[in-house]
Amino acid sequence: MEKTMRTQTHHRFLKHDTRDIPQIGDYLPLIFIDEKQTINDYITDYLLIVVLSTTCLPCKKALLVLDEYLQKNTINLVVLMDTTPESIEVVKAMFHPDTKIHKIDSYLLRTYFQGVPWGMCVNSEGQILSSYAFDNMEWFERIIFPIKELIEKS
């Protein structure tokens, strides 16, 4: 018969992160994208926020989904990217010059968003209507579903 030896285990790795990430129904906090401007400054009837990184494969797929959607639709959109200054210029060149693309610090990304690639839709009051990860058109459509009528009117 095999003898089992018990040891004392420290479960520090099981502790949960204490981030207070905004959820659906919450109001978007003031997230500064530079010294003077917040994401909230871009809100009109709605705002779609897309958070990406140039270091993850799913983000590259999400970027292609976003590009495909923007080829056919005009949308009030802010893209926040965790990237290098060189890479942000390459991404900006992919889109229409009016597309609002900003470099975001990885600390802010981890503070306010679940991860990358991530999409979040807010109404005119800044209330979060949808918030999901996406790397395909099906999940992107879920993100924009609450504002689809507003998009089609514009």
Rank of each mutant, 00 (worst) to 15 (best):
I33Q: 03
I33K: 03
D34T: 03
K36R: 14
K36S: 13
K36M: 13
Q37N: 14
I39H: 01
I39S: 01
I39C: 05
I39F: 07
D41H: 11
Y42S: 08
I43H: 02
Y46S: 08
Y46A: 08
Y46C: 08
L47C: 05
L47I: 08
L47G: 01
L48S: 00
L48P: 00
L48I: 11
I49E: 01
I49A: 02
V50K: 00
V51P: 00
L52R: 01
L52H: 02
S53V: 04
T54S: 09
T55G: 15
T55C: 14
C56L: 15
L57H: 15
L57Q: 15
P58K: 08
P58D: 10
P58S: 14
P58G: 11
P58Q: 10
K60C: 10
K60M: 15
K61C: 13
K61F: 13
A62F: 01
A62C: 06
A62Q: 02
L63P: 00
L63S: 03
L64H: 05
L64Y: 07
L66N: 00
L66K: 00
L66R: 00
D67G: 10
D67V: 13
D67T: 15
E68V: 14
E68K: 10
E68I: 15
Y69H: 04
Y69I: 13
L70R: 03
Q71K: 14
Q71M: 12
N73A: 10
N73L: 11
N73Y: 12
T74C: 14
T74N: 12
I75P: 00
I75T: 06
N76A: 10
V78K: 01
L80F: 05
M81L: 11
M81N: 02
D82A: 11
D82I: 04
D82W: 04
D82F: 06
T84L: 07
T84H: 06
T84K: 06
P85Y: 04
E86L: 06
E86T: 04
E86D: 10
S87N: 11
V90H: 13
V91N: 05
V91K: 05
V91R: 05
K92Y: 06
K92G: 06
K92N: 09
A93I: 03
A93E: 14
M94Q: 14
M94V: 11
F95R: 05
F95E: 05
P97R: 10
P97F: 09
P97T: 09
D98K: 15
D98S: 14
I101H: 07
H102E: 14
K103M: 15
K103R: 15
K103D: 12
I104M: 14
I104E: 04
I104Q: 04
D105E: 15
S106V: 13
Y107G: 09
L108K: 08
L109A: 13
L109M: 15
R110D: 11
T111V: 12
Y112T: 02
Y112S: 03
F113S: 01
F113M: 03
Q114K: 11
Q114G: 08
Q114E: 12
Q114F: 10
G115T: 05
V116W: 02
W118R: 04
W118E: 06
G119F: 02
G119L: 03
G119E: 01
G119T: 06
M120L: 10
M120Y: 02
